[in-house]
Nucleic acid binder design. Structure first.
Lengths: 234, 234
DNA sequence: ACCTGAACACCGTTCAAGT
DNA sequence: ACCTGAACACCGTTCAAGT
């Protein structure tokens, strides 16, 4: 049944005219619903009722398509307001960053492959740098801790995206059980800790996040103290 | 020229008899020399002078092959001695872990896909748990901070493996320049911080590592203090 | 017992040809 | 100007057949 009736009422009506945005929409629905592996040029073409190779008229390659996808997703972080103290703002930015990665795990790798100079990432970076400098960090330290923040959020998200591909639920239980069943003379620590393993991902993320924020706060306080001392002496 | 002379002296002499280890050796050389994308069943077969499908006699799938590869690489961490205070041991374990990931970036993803109950990973975990408990953490906290450590090392390594695929050198310089060239009224913080961006990866890793170790030490000290207080009261 | 070879159902991408 | 269709050079994997 090649005809779908009502939708074909106008003669030779294309369902949608092809464009970068239309293609990105299609790729996003496929990725979010069927996972990263399902995003193929052929599948995107099928989704749009179009020959797969027609996409090459709008994107030079699949890679370019994914890069464009990634930047579009970063826009979601920018849209949120980030107000309050530097610590509140930075915390919210990192949590929101992880949330965007987490909401679109199929595209995490593409987002990380991104060079950092894409438009929306620049605006995110600007806010992060602002918070770090307000915390009292020197420009050099701000750059350093920016790197630490990026690694923390992106690294965690990448891991979680990969783990999500495997069925986490069953493997967590299995591992916990396996560790509990190890020979206690050779693996005393594994046996002791086994029942507490693999708590909720959000909890673990927040522990690491607070650790990071504390370290930044301490570094800022130290810098302020050093400056005071310098002033007193001078 | 299909004959290679001396090596073919015996009639119908196979270069090597196929086995799991021989196949893993081949996969490792290919991965380490030509990158993750080069590891295909066809390429591994060619490396061994064998039909690609012969590998399926020893591994059920490519995935099973990669999982076996990963466990073999984790053995490298176990082989190193880890002595000294808990802090020295934990630090060395995490640094060595990152080093193994870093030495074989083609297999990082396979290593992370691993369930944690593979033989060599269990022995690594045992050592990590031991250090954390010696630091004074409760079993519950030991499990929590074990998770944080895993995320930090694995996440960082995964990121670095991906970044390595792109040519880092040029993109770092490009990004630094791009940030410096942004309109200063809209991106004051980016412009200020630009020259300090993207310092050496090892430095950033160590800053995060010390942060993590400090947090564990503080948590251990707090737990000890709480226990003392309890003893005094009781 | 172990390996081969043809085959299947996929990929990304190119390019001449259609409308 | 934009899309199609055939084609190319790849994948992982299966299975009957060879030795």
């Amino acid at each position: 049944m090649p005809s779908r009736g009502a939708e074909d009422s106008k003669p030779t009506a294309r369902p949608t005219r092809l464009s970068r945005d239309v293609i990105l929409d299609a790729a996003q629905t496929i990725g979010d619903h069927e996972g990263a592996a399902a995003i193929t040029m052929r599948r995107v073409g099928a989704e749009l009722g179009v020959d797969p190779t027609a996409i090459y008229r709008h994107f030079r390659s699949k890679d370019e398509l994914l890069v464009a996808m990634a930047d579009r997703l970063f826009a979601e972080v920018i849209e949120r307001e980030h107000t309050g103290t530097w610590r509140e703002r930075l915390s919210a930015l990192l949590i929101d960053g992880r949330a965007v990665y987490g909401a679109h795990p199929s595209f995490v790798e593409a987002m990380i492959d991104q060079p950092d100079d894409t438009p929306h990432l620049q605006r995110i970076s600007e806010r992060v740098f602002g918070a770090l400098r307000e915390a009292g960090l020197s420009n050099e330290d701000a750059a350093l801790f920016y790197d630490v923040c990026v690694r923390y959020v992106a690294g965690t998200s990448l891991l979680e995206a990969i783990w999500q591909r495997a069925d986490v639920e069953t493997s967590v239980v299995a591992t916990r059980r396996a560790y509990a069943a190890l020979p206690p003379d050779e693996f005393p620590n594994c046996v002791a800790v086994a029942p507490h393993l693999y708590r909720d991902s959000d909890d673990v993320f927040k522990v690491g996040l607070e650790m990071l924020l504390d370290a930044i706060e301490a570094r800022g306080a130290r810098a302020a103290a050093a400056k005071d001392e310098g002033t007193e002496r001078g």
